[in-house]
Simulated scan of single mutants.
Amino acid sequence: MTIPSSSGQSSSTWAHACAACKHQRRKCKSDCPLARYFPADQPDRFVNAYRHFGVSNILRIIRGVRPEDRDAAMNSIMMESNIRARDPVGGCYGIICKLELQLRDLYDELYDVKRELALYHAQEQSMLNPNADDAALDKEGY
């Protein structure tokens, strides 16, 4: 972010330090790797990530991925740290377990609905073709 001077030209001075630099009480340089992901007006995003990962680990993760994958890596870091802040015990694993339980319940419900639908379909067929049962009995010799 640049501040326009009175002459209309912009200087390369940053108006606000990013949340990471502000938290660490250091000057935010124009090439700060965290400024893009932790704007000054959203300090909670940084605090959660800082508590869960630490600055050095966040920087190591960012440097360890390809430049085109850095946004996805940072989204993952922020999502995991925000979830951990909301649920310190279960975190992401707790959410995964809850979703698996919901999925199991939905599969059970789908099975019950399909079974009931098959029952209604069989009843409909017997009502449309009432002699089919008699013909089947005649074939078997009963």
Score class of each variant (00 low, 15 high):
Met1Arg: 00
Ile3Trp: 00
Ser6Tyr: 02
Gly8Val: 08
Gln9Ala: 15
Ser10Arg: 09
Ser12Glu: 08
Ser12Ile: 05
Thr13Ile: 07
Trp14Val: 07
Ala15Cys: 03
His16Ala: 02
Ala17Trp: 00
Ala17Thr: 00
Cys18Leu: 03
Cys18Ser: 05
Ala19Val: 04
Ala20Tyr: 01
Ala20Asn: 05
Lys22Trp: 08
His23Arg: 04
His23Leu: 01
Gln24Met: 02
Gln24Trp: 00
Arg25Gln: 09
Arg25Trp: 01
Arg25His: 06
Arg26His: 00
Arg26Tyr: 00
Arg26Asp: 00
Lys27Met: 08
Cys28Leu: 01
Ser30Gly: 12
Ser30Thr: 14
Ser30Phe: 06
Asp31Lys: 12
Cys32Asp: 04
Cys32Asn: 02
Cys32Arg: 01
Cys32Pro: 03
Leu34Trp: 01
Leu34Pro: 01
Arg36Lys: 15
Arg36Glu: 13
Phe38Asn: 03
Phe38Glu: 00
Pro39His: 06
Ala40Ile: 00
Ala40Glu: 05
Ala40Gly: 07
Asp41Trp: 08
Asp41Glu: 11
Asp44Pro: 00
Arg45Met: 02
Phe46Ile: 00
Asn48Gly: 01
Asn48Glu: 03
Asn48Cys: 02
Ala49Val: 07
Tyr50Arg: 02
Tyr50Trp: 04
Tyr50Leu: 01
Arg51Val: 01
His52Ala: 05
Gly54Leu: 01
Ser56Tyr: 04
Asn57Ala: 06
Ile58Thr: 04
Leu59Gly: 05
Leu59Tyr: 03
Ile61Leu: 11
Ile62Gly: 05
Ile62Met: 08
Arg63Met: 05
Arg63Leu: 04
Arg63Tyr: 02
Val65Glu: 07
Arg66Ala: 12
Asp69Tyr: 14
Arg70Asp: 09
Arg70Thr: 14
Asp71Gly: 13
Asp71Leu: 12
Ala72Tyr: 10
Ala73Cys: 14
Asn75Val: 07
Ser76Ala: 15
Ile77Leu: 13
Ile77Gly: 07
Met78Asn: 08
Met78Ile: 13
Met79Ser: 15
Glu80Pro: 11
Asn82Ala: 14
Asn82Asp: 14
Ile83Cys: 14
Ile83Glu: 14
Arg84Ser: 15
Ala85Met: 03
Pro88Ser: 09
Val89Pro: 04
Val89His: 11
Val89Gly: 12
Gly90Asp: 03
Gly90Cys: 04
Tyr93Arg: 15
Tyr93Asp: 15
Gly94Gln: 04
Ile95Phe: 09
Ile95Asp: 09
Ile95Val: 10
Ile96Asp: 06
Leu99Cys: 00
Glu100Thr: 03
Leu101Trp: 07
Leu106His: 02
Glu109Arg: 11
Leu110Asp: 08
Leu110Thr: 09
Tyr111Phe: 12
Asp112Leu: 14
Val113Gln: 12
Val113Glu: 12
Val113Ala: 12
Arg115Leu: 13
Glu116Cys: 12
Ala118Glu: 11
Leu119Asn: 15
Leu119Lys: 15
Tyr120Ile: 13
Tyr120Gln: 15
His121Phe: 08
His121Ser: 12
Ala122Gly: 07
Gln123Val: 09
Gln125Asp: 14
Ser126Asn: 11
Leu128Gln: 10
Leu128Asn: 07
Asn129Arg: 06
Asn129Ser: 08
Asn131Leu: 04
Asn131Arg: 03
Ala132Cys: 01
Asp134His: 07
Ala135Asn: 10
Ala136Thr: 05
Ala136Gln: 05
Leu137Arg: 11
Leu137Lys: 11
Asp138Glu: 11
Lys139Trp: 12
Glu140Cys: 12
Glu140Arg: 15
Gly141Arg: 00
Tyr142Thr: 14
